[in-house]
Amino acid sequence: MKVTVDEEKCCGAGQCVLLAPEVFDQRDEDGIVILLDDGPAPALHPAVREAASVCPAAAIALSEDA
């Protein structure tokens, strides 16, 4: 799995951080997503998929090819 985020789309809701804190964080000043791991371990894939699906701004993109 390859994870990418679009900081321009991010609205700072923070659902990704709650669901997969090993993969996502937020900037202190504005809450915009910070990608900590663009190739998470397989054990984290379900949480990352859920984070992408619930992102209100659709700022998280996943590629299952990587």
Results as ranks from 00 to 15, higher is better:
Val33His: 00
Asp28Gly: 05
Leu35Thr: 08
Leu44Lys: 12
Thr4Trp: 10
Lys9Ser: 02
Ile34Arg: 01
Asp37Ile: 10
Gln26Lys: 02
Val48Lys: 09
Cys10His: 07
Ala43Leu: 04
Ala58Glu: 15
Ala66Gly: 15
Leu35Phe: 06
Glu64Asp: 15
Cys55Gly: 05
Val54His: 07
Ile34Glu: 02
Ala51Asn: 11
Ala58Asp: 14
Gly39Leu: 05
Ala41His: 15
Cys10Arg: 03
Ile34Phe: 00
Ala47Ser: 14
Pro21Met: 03
Pro56Lys: 11
Gly31Glu: 10
Val33Phe: 03
Ala20Phe: 05
Phe24Arg: 01
Pro40His: 07
Thr4Arg: 15
Leu19Lys: 13
Met1Lys: 12
Gly14Asp: 12
Ile32Gly: 00
His45Met: 08
Cys16Ile: 08
Asp30Met: 05
Ala51Thr: 11
Gln26Asn: 01
Met1Tyr: 12
Gln15Arg: 02
Gly39Ala: 10
Arg49His: 10
Ala47His: 14
Ala66Met: 05
Cys10Gln: 05
Gly39Cys: 04
Val23Ser: 04
Ala41Ser: 15
Pro21Asn: 03
Asp37Asn: 15
Gly31Cys: 01
Asp28Pro: 07
Asp25Gly: 15
Arg49Phe: 09
Asp37His: 10
Val3Leu: 01
Asp38Met: 10
Cys16Val: 08
Asp6His: 09
Ala61Lys: 13
Asp25His: 11
Leu18Gln: 14
Ala51Met: 13
Glu64Phe: 12
Arg49Lys: 14
Pro56Gly: 07
Asp6Leu: 02
Cys55Lys: 04
Ser63Pro: 01
Glu8Cys: 00
Glu8Tyr: 01
Leu19Pro: 12
Gly39Asn: 11
Lys9Ala: 09
His45Leu: 13
Cys16Trp: 09
Ala57Trp: 07
Ile32Asp: 01
Asp37Gly: 05
Glu50Tyr: 01
Phe24Asn: 01
Phe24Ala: 01
Cys55Ala: 04
Arg49Glu: 15
Leu36His: 06
Val3Cys: 02
His45Gln: 11
His45Ala: 06
Leu36Thr: 01
Ala20His: 02
Met1Gly: 11
Ala51Leu: 13
Val5Met: 07
Val23Ile: 08
Lys9Phe: 00
Leu62Thr: 09
Asp37Ala: 04
Pro21Arg: 01
Ser63Gly: 08
Asp6Ala: 03
Asp38Ile: 11
Ala13Phe: 13
Asp65Asn: 06
Ala52Lys: 03
Val5Phe: 05
Val33Asp: 00
Ile60Ser: 08
Glu64Gln: 14
Gln26Tyr: 00
Pro46Glu: 09
Gly39Glu: 14
Ile32Tyr: 04
Met1Gln: 11
Phe24Gln: 01
Leu35Ser: 05
Val5Cys: 04
Gln15Ile: 00
Lys2Leu: 13
